[in-house]
């Protein structure tokens, strides 16, 4: 374990790779969230065709291996659809996002089903449109249930980003391979230092993702308790009934 600290130049190289890793993560997360929400809602549609399409997508996205999907995106799709100049980074994000959407949709679906039926009934009684019911009543409550598994899912996508090095994107992992080649050329035999460093980077990002989702959960939970200052002018001091919960 002699050299756990790498050289400054090597860190600079890693930073370049990190940027690619993070942008793949960002794009696929964005696509994944959009797909999760829309397909998750579609899975509960009263229209059989819509439901069927959503189900086929979910089965496909969850059934296929993300590495094979990535290779299909990078090598087969551009030829089949005739765009040889497509951005590899976007194609890779598309593959990972499609993958995430399949799992995310099932999470969203389960969370929507977990919101008590009375909530929907009350919003029907208030004559909200189906979209308004979803937007103002059901989804905000489902979100509380969605967040924890979505944090885990995002970490799975982070892990998946390492795969893009296999389709020649210079992400963190690809940079590691390059550094390793340089090391081998310089007859450096110790591999531990380099890999402990890169594993730590992934680990730290994963913990950051964890933390962000925890914060979001806590922010959501705060919506379930009173909000001082929201209403400046009330008749009297709004202090009563602190212990009135029953």
């Amino acid at each position: 374990m002699e050299d756990l600290i790498l050289s400054e130049g090597q860190y600079r190289q890693l930073l370049v790779g990190l940027r690619v890793t993070l942008s793949v993560l960002g794009w696929s997360f964005l696509l994944g969230v959009v797909l999760s929400l829309s397909v998750g809602v579609m899975r509960l549609s009263s229209n059989r065709v819509v439901r069927g399409v959503a189900l086929v997508y979910v089965e496909f996205a969850r059934g296929i291996s993300s590495i094979i999907l990535l290779f299909i995106m990078a090598y087969a799709i551009p030829i089949l659809f005739g765009f040889q100049q497509g951005s590899r980074l976007l194609l890779a994000s598309l593959a990972l996002g499609l993958n995430m959407g399949g799992y995310g949709a099932e999470i969203v679906r389960g969370s929507i089903l977990a919101v008590p039926k009375g909530q929907t009934e009350a919003s029907i009684a208030l004559n909200l449109t189906p979209f308004q019911r979803l937007r103002f009543v059901v989804l905000p409550q489902a979100l509380r249930i969605i967040l924890p598994p979505f944090g885990n899912l995002t970490i799975e996508i982070l892990k998946g980003t390492a795969l893009v090095s296999l389709i020649a994107l210079t992400d963190l992992m690809q940079v590691v391979s390059i550094i390793r080649q340089q090391q081998l050329a310089n007859q450096v035999s110790d591999v531990t230092g380099l890999f402990v460093n890169v594993l730590m980077i992934y680990f730290v990002i994963a913990q950051v993702i964890n933390g962000v989702f925890r914060l979001a959960e806590r922010a959501l939970d705060r919506r379930f308790s009173s909000r001082p200052g929201d209403l400046p002018t009330l008749g009297g001091p709004a202090t009563a009934a602190a212990g009135a919960g029953g």
Partner: peptide
């Protein structure tokens, strides 16, 4: 457990392969 779970298996493959070689 947390460390292995939250790092890419691809990196672990290569790390282990290099380790064995070394």
């Amino acid at each position: 457990i947390e460390f292995i779970r939250s790092t890419p298996i691809l990196v672990q493959f290569i790390f282990f392969q290099q380790l064995v070689r070394a």
